[in-house]
Amino acid sequence: MDCSKIEQWLSEYLESSLPAEDMDLVASHLKACSSCSALADEMRSVLSLCHQYPALEMDPDFVEKILLRTSGRPRTRSFRERLQQYFVRPLLTPRFAVGASIATLFLALTVNLMVPRISGAVSALSPQELLRLLDRGVNQLYGEGLKAYEAKNEWQAQFSRFKNNTWNNLRSIMEQMDGPVQGRRKSNESEPPKENAPKEKSSGVLAERIPPA
């Protein structure tokens, strides 16, 4: 077969879009003809280059420019872009950098001042120190308990004394009050009581009205 005819079919042969008979014809020719075979190889390389050819990406600002010039509406931003716009970009400003530096410095100084206290607190957490603290606490608690017990006993004694005194006072007062009463009772026992007089009087009246049988 003629090489020029093969060249005409070469592209379709590489795409396997030729009829089966023609595919066989071209394949057999390529086996026999080195120049056509080399050309087919180069065409394969060209196709491979075309498929690997890089594609340009459109810059988002360029898309925005087109949209503003057509519909007048700005580009819809993705969540990531909005996140960058509102959070990441402000964080990357010089103002934020200065603020962050000052805050870091302040934090470092604060930590530096706090470290001795923290280390002291940490050393107090050793087992020996804990036992000592516990012992001191128990002793203090026991002492407080004793004090409270003594105070309670004292209060109790004071109360009992007060109670006895009060009771004695009351009894003496009552005795003093009972004294004249008993004296009057004794004097009344010699004389007829006054309150019986009307009875006697009434009985007298009755005696007068009703003659004894």
Binding site: E7, Q8, W9, L10, S11, E12, A38, L39, E42, M43, S45, V46, L47
Partner: peptide, 19 residues
């Protein structure tokens, strides 16, 4: 199809010459 084949052939020959 003819144009594509011709274009590919020219590029292939160009590549061959370059090699």
């Amino acid at each position: 199809k003819s144009r594509i084949n011709r274009g590919r052939l020219e590029l292939a020959k160009l590549l061959m010459r370059r090699r």
